[in-house]
Design a protein around this nucleic acid. Structure first.
Length: 595
RNA sequence: GGUCCCGUAGCUCAGCUGGAUAGAGCAACUGCCUUCUAAGCAGUAGGUCACAAGUUCGAAUCUUGUCGGGAUCACCA
């Protein structure tokens, strides 16, 4: 809150006056007061004892006295060892509450910064269905984009679909050979699943072929080279690159199946984009850049014609940018697309890539090369690197079938929500349609919260056997708290007695704790965006929900006979609901009015 | 082997720009529904913050080393 800024100024003044030592107010920081002590904020005075030349207790006491005299916000203080605990006057909380309680966008929607940020996320391959790892990526993308918007930035949500390459040819080939004309319509299989099936099919047949060849005495490498299937796939890729009509037709058809499948999953997850890039359109980009880099002397050519960037001076290796046959590699494309994006969006201030931490090295190299090429905006490129989602057995591997399918998991969550709701049996008044919507809201709330509450940088573990909880620090817990408040508000009716609020004399500790918690929301939104960490918001809302539930269980709200107290508590509840809703929105989680 | 990341309660995670007796949830155990939704609340138990040195008034947090786990370093994408 603003009040701490003022207090910091006063503390600096106090140190100047009392100990005759000038100090930057920015160096004065407050920390949370521990629960077991009385106070609203705490100043650690150890750092000032050098200047005061007095004991920590004495120093704290003198500063405390100074603040008491010179600040209208400080009601009293206490000193424990070197800790100065300050307690605000009720007026501080009353002012805060009155000026914000009916502000529906509290914490969100600050003044536009004028900054435009492109956030890339999702970026799937079209040869396999989405799994839990992609879910984390997509949820992070949605949440971070909302966090950035909530801080006043303009966000362009971008998806770069890897729709070409040898892997897609494998699916196509398998489908041609063994598919018997199967289509999503004919078999009723989701398009991405169908294409994924043939990708696996190829891999299986290919492995058999290699094994057979090896049985005839070939080494593994020889067998892989000799494999008829692989040769056919490569031939198909070659045809694709020269624009062979038949191949392109099949390719377009199968990709279309995949997109339809992806869209179903995206819709379930609530994921959307402003701009979709296809690698088939961008994979040739970057070659001119290589030419430019050679001229500039940033890149060099080896005898065989391949082009490299020497990064050994930066502690990295040499990086290939063009093969000896003149074809480009992934890095070349990424250089090209980055440049293209800044050309397309001249006002772009930042480019963020949401990509797993297995590609940390790739992005270090990418940004470094861009910098060497002289692009000023290179320093505005950021790799939002997130940890892998692991299973108890370790990393998920599509080839080995140890993946948690996105659609399956979503359906499971919805089903669990249905079962739990039916067991509790509180939804008798709802129509079937409302119930189904609710199961979806709760199921996805559980899934999204489970994933977003952990720090993106860290790897996380998902145990399919234990699945995802609905009690405790979970999405449904927070949704439940919200629904509970809604119930109260429904009964309370219109807030016709708002004028009464102006007469608030003081708050009970429960009320004060809740208001204190509410006041933190804007800072949380700011910090979460700065750190690209939705987990900050998740942890905060959990804390808020917990604080509210305590309040709810401890003090009477509608049962309160004093009309003024009642209206205050109703309005505090309304305010809490609003912050929960806004916070959950930042996580991409919906919130139900009853459950 | 080089580079980078990670080791906090039985399990999953907070806390990490150094600050008080390291916090939650799950699982276990106790209480609380005739009163605003018990997907809740209150409580008990559970820790050598991997280990060892160092920096200092103070270290889970910073430095170094050791051990353990992971990622990455392709004319793959």
């Amino acid at each position: 809150m603003k009040i701490e800024v003022e207090l910091a100024k006063l503390v600096a003044q106090a140190i100047n006056n009392l100990f005759n030592y000038p100090i930057e107010e920015g160096l004065v920081t407050f920390q949370k007061t521990r629960l077991e002590f009385e106070g609203d904020t705490t100043l650690v005075v150890f750092p000032f004892t050098k200047v005061s030349k007095k004991s920590p207790e004495e120093t704290a006491k003198e500063i405390g006295e100074f603040l008491l005299k010179n600040s209208t916000s400080v009601q009293k203080y206490n000193v424990v060892k070197g800790f100065l605990n300050l307690m605000y006057t009720d007026a501080v909380w009353i002012d805060f509450f009155i000026s914000h309680y009916n502000h529906h966008q509290f914490g969100i929607n600050s003044i536009p910064t004028g900054k435009t940020i492109m956030l890339e996320y999702s970026s799937p391959n079209t040869n396999k269905p989405l799994h839990l790892g992609h879910i984390r990526n997509n949820l992070l993308g949605v949440s971070v984009s909302r966090l950035l918007e909530a801080n006043g930035h303009k966000v362009v949500k971008a998806n770069l679909i890897n729709d070409r390459g040898i892997h897609i040819c494998k699916s196509m080939l398998a489908w041609q050979q063994w598919g018997n004309g199967e289509t999503p319509e004919l078999s009723g299989m989701k398009g991405d699943k169908l294409v994924g099936k043939y990708y696996v099919e190829f891999d299986k047949k290919y492995k058999t072929e290699v094994t057979e060849l090896m049985a005839k005495g070939l080494t593994k490498e020889e067998a892989e080279k000799k494999s008829l299937l692989m040769q056919q796939a490569q031939e198909m890729l070659r045809k694709w690159e020269v624009g062979d009509k038949e191949v392109r037709k099949t390719w377009e058809m199968m990709n279309e199946w995949v997109y339809q499948g992806f869209n179903v999953t995206y819709n379930l997850l609530g994921v959307s984009f402003d701009k979709i890039y296809y690698e088939s359109n961008t994979y040739l980009l970057g070659k001119e850049v290589v030419e430019y880099g050679l001229q500039k002397g940033v890149l060099f050519k080896k005898e065989d014609g391949s082009v490299w960037c020497d990064l050994t001076a930066d502690g990295l290796d040499q990086k290939l940018l063009l093969r000896s046959d003149g074809t480009s590699v992934y890095m070349t494309q990424d250089l090209g697309t980055a440049i293209k994006r800044f050309e397309e969006y001249p006002l772009l201030n930042q480019l963020i890539y949401t990509v797993g931490n297995e590609q940390d090295y790739h992005f270090r190299v990418l940004f470094l090369i861009l910098q060497k090429l002289g692009y000023q905006w290179a320093k505005e490129c950021y790799h939002l690197s997130y940890g892998m989602v692991e299973l108890p057995e370790g990393k998920m591997k599509s080839r080995e079938g140890t993946v948690v399918d996105a659609d399956d998991l979503i359906q499971e969550m919805i089903e669990t929500a249905r079962q739990t709701s039916e067991e509790l049996g509180k939804l008798d008044e709802c129509t079937e349609e409302e119930k189904n919507k609710l199961y979806y809201t709760i199921g996805l709330g559980a899934l999204k919260y489970f994933i977003l509450k952990v720090d993106p940088k860290k790897k996380m573990l998902f145990n399919p056997k234990e699945s995802i909880d609905f009690n405790g620090n979970t999405g449904p817990f927070i949704q439940y708290t919200y629904a509970r408040i809604c119930s109260i508000l429904r009964r309370a009716g219109e807030p016709a007695y708002n004028h009464l609020l102006l007469n608030i004399a003081n708050f009970t500790t429960e009320e004060k704790d809740l208001i204190k918690c509410l006041s933190l929301f804007p800072e949380v939104v700011k910090k979460a965006a700065e750190e690209y960490n939705p987990g900050e918001v998740a942890n905060y809302i959990y804390d808020l929900a917990k604080t509210y539930n305590h309040f709810y269980q401890t003090v009477p709200i509608l049962r309160e006979s004093d009309e003024m107290l009642k209206s205050i508590r109703v309005e505090i509840s309304r305010f809490t609901a609003s912050v929960i809703k806004n916070g959950m929105y930042l996580l991409g989680i919906e919130v139900p009015e009853r459950m």
